[in-house]
Simulated scan of single mutants.
Amino acid sequence: MGSDGRDDAETAEPDDGGYVHRPSGEPPRQAETSEAFGREGWVLVGMIVLGFLVIPIAILLLPAAQDLVRSLGLTLRAAYLALPLVPAFLLGAVAVWSALRSRRS
């Protein structure tokens, strides 16, 4: 308590280190963008089509392709587990590839 009966925390001024924000008045700049989709965009679209269309259709057709699955040395259960991993690994590889390319440029 201070001498006037108030808490010191109530009377203390904020300790901001003397910082005062003074905007410069100029508007913020927007990052430059390109309208071109590019090769990276098409690779990503291909991976999405593979992951959301091709692999689910292949999973639905697995019971009809049991002979093909057996010829690859897989059981039907193993094929159901392994097939969704294909787009997962490919999407991960595309993400790493895209990150490395954007870092280079």
Rank of each mutant, 00 (worst) to 15 (best):
V45A: 15
V45G: 06
V45H: 07
V45N: 03
G46H: 08
M47N: 10
M47K: 00
M47G: 13
I48M: 12
I48W: 11
I48L: 15
V49D: 00
L50V: 04
L50W: 07
G51L: 06
G51H: 02
F52N: 06
F52T: 15
V54T: 12
V54A: 13
V54C: 08
P56E: 06
I57H: 01
A58V: 09
A58K: 03
L60Y: 10
L62K: 00
L62M: 11
P63H: 04
P63V: 05
P63R: 06
P63N: 04
Q66L: 10
Q66Y: 08
D67N: 10
L68A: 15
L68N: 10
V69S: 02
V69M: 01
V69D: 03
R70T: 11
R70E: 15
R70I: 01
S71W: 06
G73Y: 06
T75E: 04
L76V: 08
L76T: 09
R77P: 00
A78E: 15
A78D: 15
A79F: 05
A79G: 07
A79C: 08
Y80R: 15
L81R: 12
L81C: 07
L81M: 14
L81V: 14
A82D: 10
A82I: 09
A82G: 09
L83D: 05
L83M: 14
L83G: 02
L85T: 09
L85V: 12
L85P: 00
V86N: 02
V86S: 02
V86W: 03
P87A: 06
P87K: 05
P87R: 04
F89C: 12
F89H: 05
L90Q: 12
L91C: 09
L91Q: 04
